[in-house]
Design a protein around this nucleic acid. Structure first.
Lengths: 139, 139
DNA sequence: GAAAAATGTTTTATATCATAACATTATTGC
DNA sequence: GCAATAATGTTATGATATAAAACATTTTTC
């Protein structure tokens, strides 16, 4: 029905997000917060606007999200001394522990998705096809 | 990055929807409205709540959407005499013409997506994989 | 016929997303 | 060096999407 590719994409995405949200409800973590923590853990020191742009979040809307992570003691803003306008983002010690737990819980979710797809090969094929749709704006 | 399957799905879906929205901006038609018109055209006479449920729209939110289509003279509510609580939905004559135009414009969009994917075979493979993710709630 | 359920509707709350304006700091052009 | 411009984070605001609760009307159930 409907836009076929577009419609199926939307339905599948909603299903997967629903599973994701359910999986992380116990950790009180939403998808956007998950992504931000994952990026900070992977490449600490990035500026707010850099991370916001990576994720397609407007920097205005990033402020409240980061406020939340800071208030929970998971991440922190540090004044970058090379550019005192910007804040470089880092995990706290508690944030590091949280991210390790997060990765374990995430694997749970991802394995469920792979199982639904029928295996890792199918997952890879799906990722490949999705990349072709995204491609115009880079990987 | 991020949830891999979930994150890529979301990005791809946003890209495709962006193209869809751009394609239909000239017709002042949003994805949800498109889907509703497509369903009414395909199976006229369904009740509001039936169509709403098909599309995963809460029937409360369906009201304003249908109001808009009615105000534009594209679709109409008819009192079903078998059940006078419900409204069965139909296209107007203008709605029929509009849907024909809509289908042509949609093909434009869909062909662009198929081209990005690398052909109809890849499109079919993608649909097949997405169906596996949706499966739990039926096709 | 009374109790319960279905249907459409209104109202309200919440979350998401985009835009504009602003203060502070860096950069650029002269 | 200084003025104009741009970048960064922030606040405020509006638009849109989504969900939930309450209600009137009608149908179904027992």
């Amino acid at each position: 029905m409907s836009t076929i590719v577009g419609y199926k994409l939307r339905r599948a995405q909603l299903h997967v997000f629903q599973d994701f949200i359910g999986t992380f409800s116990k950790m009180k973590l939403r998808p956007a917060e998950f992504s931000v923590l994952a990026i900070i853990a992977n490449t600490p020191g990035l500026k707010q606007s850099e991370i916001a742009e990576m994720l397609g979040i407007k920097r205005a809307n990033f402020v409240a999200l980061m406020d939340g992570l800071e208030k929970r003691g998971l991440a922190e803003r540090r004044k970058a001394d090379t550019d005192r306008r910007s804040h470089s983002l880092h995990l706290t010690a508690e944030g590091e522990r949280f991210v390790r737990k997060m990765a374990a819980v995430w694997a749970e979710h991802e394995n469920r998705m792979i199982e639904r797809l029928g295996g890792a090969r199918e997952r890879d094929r799906l990722i490949g096809l999705l990349d072709r749709l995204i491609e115009p704006a880079g990987q």
